[in-house]
């Protein structure tokens, strides 16, 4: 039996981090009444946003991406979540069809 040397371990680590995809993050964003919390970080393409409706009213969020693409999430009753995976980089504006007072903005990095 051959025990791995430090060089083997380093090589294995290199293989692991070059072969494995970058871990996508799941970012939870609470909604209280008509306030969507700031995202707090710069998400990456491939990360998933989870909007959690803690309000006692329904929401219907939509995301407008820098290229003009609009992604509408379905109506979100109280106590439910809606998820979306970020497919492109750039500036994003989150608004609500029901409550135009809602507005949250963030940037998505490419990696």
């Amino acid at each position: 039996m051959t025990f791995p040397t430090l060089r083997h371990v380093a090589f294995a680590g290199l293989l692991l981090f070059s072969a494995a995809p970058a871990l996508a993050a799941e970012i939870e964003i609470p909604i209280h009444h008509t306030e969507v919390a700031d995202i707090g970080v710069t998400p990456k393409v491939g990360d998933t946003l989870t909007f959690v409706n803690h309000a006692d009213i329904a929401h219907n969020l939509y995301l407008t991406f820098e290229d003009g693409t609009v992604q509408t999430l379905d109506t979100q009753p109280p106590g439910t979540t809606k998820r979306t995976t970020l497919a492109r980089e750039g500036h994003v504006i989150v608004r609500c069809w029901i409550h135009p007072i809602i507005r949250m903005e963030f940037d998505v990095s490419d990696k």
Binding site: L23, E26, E28, H32, H33, T48, T50, V52, N53, H54, A55, D56, P78, G79, T80, T81, R83
Partner: peptide, 20 residues
Amino acid sequence: VTLAAYAATAGLGGATPDVA
């Protein structure tokens, strides 16, 4: 990865509405 996915999923049903 599995744990992260589980944690994310587990969090989905955890919303507590601010019910009047």
